[in-house]
Amino acid sequence: MDTSIGYEISFGGKVIVFGGAFRQILPVVPNGGRQEIVNASLCSSYLWSKCKLLRLKKNMRLTIGRSTSDIEDINNFAKWLLDLGEGNNYNNHNYFSKRAILAPKNEVVHEINDRLLALFPGEEREYLSSDSLCQTENPNSTQLKLYSPDVLNGLKVSGLPNHRLVLKVGVPIMLLRNIDQQNGLCNDTRLQIKRLYNRVIEAEIISGGNIGTRTYIPRLNLIPSDKKIPFAFQRRQFPIAVCFAMTINKSQGQLLSRVGLYLRQPVFTHGQLSVALSRVKSRDGVKLLILDKDGKPTDKTSNVVYKEVFNKL
């Protein structure tokens, strides 16, 4: 048998289906600029010339459960989203006029969550993590002093729960790790806390295909993937974060009935504004608060679109 057959065929001749929207957020390249992000996209790959492009022309997100009397508004909103995603000019500020608050950056999201958690009724419960250097570091006495538990406790890393986690019954939370994908416990799944125990948290899924399912979330040993950290450490903590608010990137793929978009600073990468505004089915489902450089409300904001990513479509 000739084992060389298929070696020069992409994926060995298998049919592979890629899905996605170039109007939305492109691949994340740490510390990458515009050109690096565009180059990391599928349409810049050597495989792109061998792909067959199929276009989905009907916005199913907007039409599901809508009456025929809303067709005109739906079509207008869909066209506006397309124009926004492609960076076309628009002057209609009326559009800037299941619930979540979205913001471009983590620091703003954390401020909103802390404020709303303090206002939320109920008794707080505090969970502290156990942090230590990984054994792969072979830490000596000097490293143990330099990276003491107090130093590790103070580290705040994207995708990792904080050392101090404050929760209340009824608060919405988001998973930061895949726990049980078959049962809907995936990264970015939203849940609502039902009970708080010493070693587990009982919660109900409120997003995805397993809405209404009760589950228990344990503490896990979590190791950050951020390459900026010059040493490996692990944090034993519940893999969750409070999510009254979330970043626009985290909201990608979710369908919400109400969205509040808080733009204290403008969006900073391709597709963010398009993703935020397309989380809802109609323009009535989104409210925006936009601040200018002086911190005053305004009805204008910047949009970021790398139009060169559409050149090969």
Rank of each mutant, 00 (worst) to 15 (best):
G295P: 11
K307H: 05
E137I: 15
S251G: 11
N92E: 04
V200G: 05
G19A: 04
R99H: 04
E137G: 10
G20L: 02
R214N: 14
T3V: 13
N221S: 14
D131T: 13
I173K: 09
T189N: 09
G159D: 08
G260V: 05
S4K: 05
V242N: 14
P161D: 08
G13F: 07
P239L: 07
T142P: 02
L313K: 13
L152T: 03
I101Y: 02
E126S: 06
S257W: 00
D299C: 07
V171R: 05
S45M: 02
R115W: 02
E72R: 08
R236M: 07
N198H: 06
L273T: 04
E202L: 10
N106F: 04
L165Q: 06
L102V: 01
S274F: 05
S4A: 06
R177M: 05
K227A: 13
L47P: 13
R219A: 15
G85I: 00
A100G: 10
I74D: 07
P139Y: 14
R279E: 01
V171S: 13
L255F: 03
I37K: 04
N113I: 05
L119Q: 10
V109D: 10
G12N: 13
Y306L: 00
R258W: 04
S44W: 01
L291F: 04
N88C: 00
G159A: 08
I64F: 08
S274D: 06
P224G: 12
C51F: 13
N39S: 12
P27T: 08
N311M: 12
Q192Y: 06
I217L: 14
N88S: 01
G184T: 14
I64D: 12
P230Y: 12
Y306C: 00
N187W: 03
R195H: 06
N311R: 07
I5M: 06
V151K: 14
N59D: 01
D294N: 15
V280A: 00
N75V: 11
T247Q: 14
F231V: 15
E123F: 11
E8W: 02
V108C: 06
G271W: 04
F96R: 06
P239S: 11
P27R: 06
Q24H: 09
T301V: 09
F231N: 13
N92H: 01
H163G: 01
E126N: 06
T298S: 09
Q181E: 14
K281T: 03
Q254N: 12
K250M: 11
